[in-house]
């Protein structure tokens, strides 16, 4: 569906490494750190709040199985897209990346359905502390997924315009790393919410 005949040009917009600066994308690392600290703070809050005496776990809606599957598949799709790019197969790369974005949107849809299901069961934000954490954590996480989808859209656009080459595609890699990270955060949150 997308022009595949486009030739790959060197990624002229890649940040040029400074003469002594390391190759590590420190800005990205710092971003992951600060997002990680946010969910660490929420975790600490959950562990404290759990001892409050009124902690009754809420059964999570089954649709989270669907959304979790989507986000895992989406991460895999990003890696497949990167693999195609490394082989110089632009059209396949574009398709897989678009697919991963689609899966990410399905994940978001799944989360909305999960909120709807809980609400239909009469479980709202103030119903119980566990429910409050579920709503709050999944919504905060969803905001980061939206950011990740933005990064994927941006990358997809540049990929289609031929901005990445098999050798130079750091921007693509950074978006992928962020996407895997927010995916992993979801798995972590799910375990946290099921375990307690």
């Amino acid at each position: 569906m997308i022009a595949s005949a486009r030739t790959l040009s060197p990624d002229a917009r890649q940040p040029v490494p400074s003469p002594v600066g390391g190759p590590y994308p420190m800005g990205l690392m710092a971003l992951l750190t600060t997002v990680g600290m946010l969910f660490a703070a929420f975790t600490a809050a959950l562990l404290v709040r759990r001892t409050g005496g009124d902690w009754t776990p809420v059964r999570l809606p089954r649709v989270v199985v669907f959304s979790t599957t989507c986000i895992v598949l989406s991460s895999i799709a990003v890696e497949v897209a990167r693999a195609w790019l490394r082989r110089g197969m632009l059209a396949d790369s574009v398709n897989w990346l678009a697919g991963s974005g689609l899966l990410g949107m399905l994940f978001l849809g799944g989360q909305v359905v999960a909120w709807r299901h809980l609400a239909l069961r009469g479980v709202f934000l103030p119903s119980s502390p566990h429910a409050a954490f579920f709503y709050m954590l999944s919504a905060t996480h969803a905001a980061h997924i939206v950011g990740g989808l933005g990064a994927i859209a941006w990358t997809l656009n540049r990929l289609r315009r031929g901005a990445y080459s098999p050798e130079r595609h750091a921007g693509f890699t950074h978006a992928a790393v962020f996407w895997h990270f927010v995916g992993a955060v979801w798995l972590y949150l799910l375990i946290l919410l099921i375990a307690f």
Binding site: P15, P17, S18, P19, V20, G21, G22, Y24, P25, M26, G27, A30, L31, T34
Partner: peptide, 13 residues
Amino acid sequence: GLNFVATILNMRT
């Protein structure tokens, strides 16, 4: 903060 860290670590002459 992200900008500062990245600039100081990656952009020194």
